[in-house]
């Protein structure tokens, strides 16, 4: 068995590295396929369109080298953990920009993912157990309704309702500069500011995950082994925890791992609506201003975390689903 699983790990690892290389290469090529040259754009904005100036900018950014040279340099620097220097915020290292933005993103995105999955599992299970009841109908009906509302709108409604009119929560930002005092006061302030963004993301993501959980449970309940367990006279609670939940959670677990992997991609709409500092908006602005190194840096982080989380999921999966390790 041991040899088996080591081989499994190596195989998965090689496939992860290969995927990463492909992703990083596309990551390099894609921004350069966009129409518009960042150096010329800067020259047109600040230096009366001067071509000499655009040329100076290109030299500064290393864009005067051939695309192949740029690619080799990019891979070499990446292996040294160097993400380059942002064009639009020259000469700030991309690494600094990302490190500044990412804790905030992770805070709200991971919090909302965990809350959303926990609630989805709980409500989904409950509504499956009470299939056809008023509760079930209400939950499913509301879910379909919420599912069809765009996030942007939900976010703005929440800002208007709880921030602008009721004034229960701040309309945006991650913290208040005026809050002083100990660590607790700071943490409290940060949580207070994170409440509405997290709430909005939970509301929007909850519905789909809950419906999925509900149908998983219902499907498992129709399996023969559940019927057998019922026939044996096992208690309903024991059937649920020992047989049904374990199996119903499997697809949802993959969803959770994927969501966590995508967490660093940020939540562009949330960051925009709540003026929240984060990596999503940084990425979007980088793309709009053709800041190649920053785009590459942001996508590299996203690619690495998605691939890593998938790799981890592959490793954990055999532990929770014995059928997988044998294949």
């Amino acid at each position: 068995m041991r040899g088996f699983s080591l081989k499994y790990v190596i195989k998965r690892f090689i496939s992860a590295v290969f995927t990463l290389w492909i992703a990083l290469t596309i990551n390099f090529l894609l921004p350069r396929c966009m129409g518009g040259d960042p150096a010329e754009y800067l020259a047109s904005q600040s230096a009366m369109g001067s071509l000499e100036y655009a040329e100076l900018m290109k030299q500064q950014f290393g864009l005067d080298k051939s695309i192949f040279e740029q690619y080799i340099l990019y891979l070499k620097e990446l292996l040294h953990g160097n993400l380059g220097v942002s064009y639009m915020n020259f000469p700030t290292p991309v690494k600094d920009i990302i490190l500044e933005a990412i804790p905030w993103t992770l805070l709200i995105v991971i919090t909302s993912i965990l809350i959303s999955f926990a609630l989805a599992w709980f409500l989904g299970t409950l509504s499956a157990l009470k299939k056809g009841s008023f509760f079930d109908n209400a939950v499913v009906g509301t879910s379909f309704y919420i599912q069809s509302i765009p996030y942007f709108w939900v976010g703005m409604l929440i800002v208007m309702a709880f921030g602008y009119y009721l004034e229960w929560f701040p309309m945006g930002h991650a913290q208040d500069a005026a809050v002083t005092g100990g660590f607790l006061a700071q943490a409290g302030d940060i949580a207070y500011h994170a409440f509405l963004p997290v709430l909005s993301m939970v509301i929007v993501s909850l519905a789909g995950r809950m419906i999925m959980m509900r149908s998983n449970i219902l499907q498992v309940f129709s399996e023969d082994y559940i019927v057998l367990a019922q026939a044996k006279g096992l208690k309903k609670g024991k059937i649920l925890t020992k047989y049904a939940l374990r199996n119903a959670l499997l697809p949802s677990f993959t969803g959770l791992m994927l969501s966590l992997g995508q967490a660093v991609g940020g939540a562009i709409a949330t960051e925009l609506v709540f003026s929240y500092p984060g990596i999503g908006l940084t990425t979007m602005n980088a793309i709009l201003s053709h800041d190649y190194p920053l785009i590459q840096g942001c996508f590299a982080i996203i690619a690495v975390s998605v691939v890593t989380l998938n790799f981890l999921a592959d490793l954990i999966y055999p532990l929770i689903d014995p059928r997988v390790s044998l294949s």
Binding site: M34, G35, G36, E40, Y41, L288
Partner: peptide, 8 residues
């Protein structure tokens, strides 16, 4: 077109 494309 994006702003950068427009300038180009």
């Amino acid at each position: 077109a994006t702003w950068a494309e427009l300038s180009q």
